[in-house]
Amino acid sequence: MSAVLPVTVPAATASATSASPPLPALFVSHGAPLFAIEAGETGPALTHWGQALRARFPDLRGVVILSPHWMAPSIEVMEGSAPATWHDFGGFPPALYALRYPAPGAPALAGEVLAELRAAGLEARGNAQRPFDHGAWVPLMHLFPAADVPVVQVALPVAAGPAQAYAMGAALRGLRAQGVLVAGSGSMTHNLYEFGGGEQAPAPYVQAFSRWVEDAIQRQDLPALLDYRRQAPHAQRAHPTEEHFLPLFFALGAAGEAWQADYLSREVMYGMLAMDSFTLDAAV
């Protein structure tokens, strides 16, 4: 269990400006790798939202995305200009391995990300060789299928807990006013010990946990969310390990101190993978 630590929110950085309306932050559940070719209800919902975002923000500069499938001793930031698509899984249909997501990298944006993290007192270094793992490219295939939006992936430190992931997102909050989508890609529930494949009715614990999280988010109850391991029903069963839940806190940190959630999906796949995905805008 991760300790609940005080959350230090960095002051607004020089990159933020009131001249540009900030993009929302985003949390997306990326499910199993098969989500790339078995889109369910969530894939089209993400595509529709991505289209609307491009219409609302035609000058979208790029995406900064954190995935639990890149974990490192400390924060790392993708610096490559043309990251490869990594099929970091095994035992799936050949069609899945034929997929490529050739979105460009964004070395200049990566430099801004590194600068913001370091300005917030967080140790971070660049990585020019890192490819896109499926926690990044699978949901991005649905969000931006043309692969024409530059992407910078960020690593999750192996020792991070909710407060640390929140602080990482908070450090990058100002980028949202600079045409950058800051996203956490994880899973609302992720107990792969219970994965059986095929269509199944959602397990009751999945719904109980997911709706507790939704209620806490809608109440903007950050202390309860940070303490979810003790307070949420079935937290241990929903997340035997918590790396797939931590991107939620990255998105919350990027969203600001008061947010309003707009759910894009509450689908449950295979009876145990909650695909909850939602945007986080400033509360009005």
Rank of each mutant, 00 (worst) to 15 (best):
M1R: 05
S2G: 04
A3G: 06
V7Q: 05
T8F: 00
T13N: 11
T13Q: 10
S18W: 00
S20P: 00
L26G: 10
F27N: 02
H30V: 10
H30I: 07
P33N: 04
F35R: 11
P44C: 03
A45N: 11
T47P: 06
T47N: 09
H48E: 13
W49R: 01
L53G: 14
G62K: 04
P68S: 11
P68G: 12
H69N: 12
W70M: 07
A72P: 04
S74D: 14
M78E: 03
S81M: 05
A82N: 12
A84E: 01
W86R: 06
F89I: 15
G91H: 07
F92H: 13
A95D: 13
L96Y: 06
Y97Q: 15
L99P: 09
P102N: 12
A103D: 11
G105H: 11
A106K: 01
L109I: 11
A115M: 02
R118P: 13
G121L: 04
E123T: 05
A124P: 08
A128F: 02
A136I: 07
W137D: 10
P139D: 13
L140W: 09
M141W: 04
M141D: 06
L143A: 14
L143S: 15
P150L: 06
L156P: 00
L156M: 13
P157Y: 05
G161C: 10
Y166C: 00
L172I: 08
R176Y: 11
A177G: 14
G184T: 10
S185H: 05
S187A: 15
S187G: 14
M188N: 12
N191Y: 02
G198W: 07
Y205W: 15
F209R: 08
E214F: 04
E214C: 12
D215C: 01
Q218I: 03
Q220P: 03
L226N: 08
L226D: 05
D227W: 06
R229D: 15
R229P: 00
R229T: 08
R229A: 15
R230K: 09
Q231N: 10
H239Q: 01
T241Y: 04
H244C: 12
P247T: 15
F249K: 08
L252Y: 10
G256C: 11
Q260A: 13
S277P: 05
A283E: 05
V284W: 00
V284F: 00
